[in-house]
């Protein structure tokens, strides 16, 4: 009883502390920084999607930190749920009477998985033009792998390929950032994409190196989320 009263008091206190957010402040203009990004993003970097220019370039360092957090969490999940090496897992799955996936799911996954991977690649290649980008594309690729895992839980993923993709794309991401730092002139910063030609606004091959950088982020996020799903999956081996 006492615990419940204290809990409700804490929730009420939190609600009181958050009340200023609920009142409509009635802003009519974006802040100075947002105005600068909105005005200069398309002109300086040639991206139609302003969010992409912030995520990849202006705030690229934050994204690097975010990818690092994602990597650390994935490593934590993998370490906590490390597979026991013995071979009795497979036998146990059969003993448990684990039913096979249905024929419909199997056939649909064979048809859908490649299309979903293609859609994910489309999403992160067009990150600078349309809504979407590396994170969304990577998530869609992980979903494609998830459908495959649902259809055939016993299938082993190619862990070597996944680790290679993840490591190489992470390395290339940092390397491209450093290239931006050194080769674009005096005012350049980390992850400046302007060492490639900017091109024409609205074309696929535009916005300097942003499509390349976002594709690398997409591959890395896709590989990491696939790793999380694979580690969380019950022992199938």
């Amino acid at each position: 009883m006492m615990k419940k009263v204290m809990l409700l008091a804490a929730i009420a206190l939190l609600a009181f502390a958050l009340w200023p957010f609920v009142r409509d402040v009635g802003l009519a203009e974006p802040g100075e920084l947002a105005t600068a990004y909105l005005e200069r993003g398309p002109a300086e970097l040639g991206t139609a999607n302003v969010v992409t220019s912030i995520v990849v370039s202006y705030r690229g360092f934050d994204t690097l930190g975010e990818v690092t957090v994602l990597f650390t969490a994935t490593a934590g999940v993998g370490g906590l749920l490390a597979r026991r090496k013995s071979g009795h897992g497979r036998k146990k799955a059969a003993e448990r009477g684990a039913t096979d996936a249905s024929e419909i799911l199997k056939t649909a996954s064979r048809l859908l998985s490649p299309l979903l991977v293609l859609f994910g690649v489309y999403i992160f290649l067009h990150g600078h033009l349309t809504p979407g980008g590396g994170f969304q594309g990577g998530v869609i690729i992980a979903t494609a792998v998830l459908i495959g895992l649902l259809a055939d839980p016993e299938a082993g993923l190619a862990h070597g390929v996944m680790h290679l993709v993840e490591g190489l794309s992470g390395f290339a991401y940092v390397a491209l950032g450093a290239v931006g730092l050194w080769f674009t002139g005096v005012q350049a910063g980390f992850l400046d994409p302007r060492f490639l030609p900017l091109g024409e606004l609205g074309r696929l091959a535009s916005a300097g190196a942003i499509p390349i950088i976002y594709s690398l982020v997409g591959l890395k996020v896709g590989a990491e989320l696939t790793g999380i799903l694979d580690a969380m999956k019950e022992d199938a081996e």
């Binding site: 992409t52 979407g132 998530v139 979903t143 799903l229």
Partner: peptide, 19 residues
């Protein structure tokens, strides 16, 4: 915020539930 909407739909309702 279409970018955020895409991410939330794919992650929040598909992957988190699956995990």
């Amino acid at each position: 915020a279409p970018d955020v909407a895409m991410t939330e739909a794919a992650i929040g309702s598909a992957l988190t539930t699956m995990v």
